[in-house]
Simulated scan of single mutants.
Amino acid sequence: MAGDEINLGEALAGNAVRRLIRDVGRLPDDLRKRLRPAMREAAQPVLADARRRASWSTRIPAALRLATSFTRRQAGVSIVASQKRAPHARPYEGITGRDNFRHPVFGNREEWVEQKTRPFIGPAVDLHGRRVVAAVNKTVDEAAREAGFKRT
């Protein structure tokens, strides 16, 4: 992940991918090439919904993108926001768990205001997450089977 990006969404559909990585180690390149577009396609409804929910902002929707990962720690597909393009995305999503956040008024550090969060990724994941997980798990199973792995 580039330095100007923040990962806002938990990795979606990572269980099957993590399980496969745990069983075989580093995934072969051809398997990654097959899985990456399928994972991105499965997660498109979540990204579209998150962008729609953030449409009150002129910058957040365009700053959101999907990122795929095949590491043991974070396998799956995540929604990432460019911190450079939308530095306000993180506080508005409310990833700290609070309903409010504080910020200076127009950069004036002498005057601070409290503002309510407006989550856009969490609700999109809640709505579409199960379908994404099912689609990615199916793709992982098919790709693993075609690569010669057998179900135990």
Rank of each mutant, 00 (worst) to 15 (best):
V140P: 00
R130H: 14
G25K: 01
R131E: 15
R118H: 11
S82Y: 08
E114Y: 01
T152F: 14
R59N: 12
V17Y: 02
P104R: 01
H88Y: 11
A62H: 12
V132K: 04
E10R: 13
R34A: 11
V136H: 01
D126W: 12
P123Y: 14
A48C: 07
G94L: 07
N7R: 08
V132H: 05
A16K: 00
E142I: 09
N7Y: 02
V80T: 02
A16P: 00
V46I: 14
P123H: 12
D141C: 06
N108W: 13
A89H: 05
E110N: 14
N108Y: 12
A38L: 15
R98S: 12
I79K: 00
M39L: 10
F106C: 05
P87Y: 01
F149W: 15
D49F: 10
P119E: 09
T117P: 02
G76M: 07
Q44E: 15
D141Q: 13
Q74T: 14
P87V: 01
R36N: 09
R32D: 03
G122I: 10
E146L: 15
R90T: 07
R52N: 13
P123I: 15
K84H: 08
Q44D: 11
P91A: 07
E41M: 12
P37Y: 11
D49L: 15
A143G: 04
R40P: 01
R118Y: 02
S82A: 03
Q115W: 07
D4C: 01
R51Y: 12
A143I: 10
F149T: 04
N7I: 03
W112V: 11
G129K: 10
R102C: 08
A135W: 08
A63P: 11
E146M: 13
L64A: 08
D30A: 13
R19C: 00
P37T: 14
A62L: 09
E10F: 08
A2Y: 02
Y92M: 14
D141P: 00
